[in-house]
Amino acid sequence: MDLKRLINGSFEHAEEVKEFFKNKDVNDRLDDGDIEGYELLLRKPDGEVQSISPISAVLFSADLPVYRNIVRDDLENRRNQILNTEEFPGNLAAYDRLLNLVKHKATVIPFVGAGFSVASGCPSWSEYIEQEALNAGLKTDIAERLKVGDHENLMDEVVVALGIDLFTRDFRSNFEGGRITPALSPSSELAGLFNECYITTNFDRVLDHCHHESMPFDEKVVGKDDTGRFLKAIYRNEKYLLKLHGNIDEPRDRVLTKNEYDKGYGEGKVDYSFPIPRTLQRIFGSFTVLFVGCSLISDRYLDVLKETYSFAPALIPDHFAIVVAPDDEAERLLRDRHLASHGITPIWFANGDWDKPEEILKLLKLES
């Protein structure tokens, strides 16, 4: 049966036709029998019974209320499964708040961390630092230092021990080249959902490549840029990428070692006369930020966020994070309190459930 001819012939309004084809995943599963309990039968005058297919198109054309009930029930089941509401009951309310912003075209700025490059073939940032620390011959308890968020000092020791040239060469070998497949990154699901400005701390180019074919960035700027171009782009609804900590091979704009962090954020405490914290303060205080692929344990951009939130918590827009939950409930409570102190509402997923961030983004796309 020609679905398009059936659907287009049954409804005069394009929105009704669009509704059917938007539900392609549900339609396919309904037609394949994966949604149990539904079968359409034609009983002929001679008593012969014949199945009618495709079920989805026939139901949509003949009994739209029933069709919509099936779609609604299926969506509710998918929400509960994807958001894992049995283990994380608070996920649903957090997700609905984020969905409401997306539906109403509010400005939501994705903040993309290294975790979103792992599926493309890049090592995780913590794994990479640990391996480089071992290569550098460091004997300290590397894993424990990473667990408590001592990335900055550990990275400084690694770069000093290896030298920046060797570190940069090794970085390119691990984060660039033919074995990296950007299309496998969940970042590809951000395109089409958030079509304006993005922020990333990543030195790799996975996010840029994910958007290059369909919706390329109009411009890429670094965090130390002092022109205010990124903020202007947000207000103008232009699509800019803010490489917050610069690029690995550009020492002038890079923020990697402790010395570079001090030059980017201030020494001892955050210095808001510097471009990076000044820009972040404006962003965090004015627009919703969605953190994805970020551990959110320790980084100086979190210091800016915490200070911005503490100054006027009632006036700060909602911020969200799709973030892995600690296995231990007591530890999860501590993490939740940590996030709350920064004005971040988590949408949790279980450790090891690495497909969940992509599924949550797909669900947002479907419902928005």
Rank of each mutant, 00 (worst) to 15 (best):
F203P: 04
D249T: 09
E238H: 00
T168W: 13
T257Y: 04
L40E: 03
N174I: 07
D31N: 08
D150Y: 05
K24P: 02
R169T: 14
K22N: 09
E130C: 13
S61K: 12
K263E: 11
R335Q: 02
P313D: 00
R229A: 12
V118A: 05
I52M: 07
D355V: 14
L146G: 01
G121F: 09
K22A: 10
D96S: 03
R79Q: 09
G9E: 04
A325T: 03
K220E: 09
S273K: 10
L364Q: 03
L231V: 06
P326M: 07
Y240N: 02
D355E: 14
W348C: 14
H211L: 04
D32W: 09
R282F: 08
I180E: 12
E329H: 13
D34N: 07
G223N: 04
A133N: 05
R78A: 10
I52F: 06
D74Y: 05
G268M: 10
R97D: 01
N84C: 03
L193N: 00
E12G: 08
E238S: 09
R97N: 00
L241D: 01
F88M: 02
P110L: 05
G113H: 02
F203K: 00
K103E: 11
V58P: 09
V324T: 07
I344N: 01
E157R: 03
V112W: 09
D165Q: 03
V270T: 02
P317L: 06
N69V: 12
A133R: 05
L162D: 13
A143T: 10
A106Y: 12
F20D: 04
R278S: 04
N100H: 00
G33E: 06
T200Y: 01
D353I: 10
K220L: 09
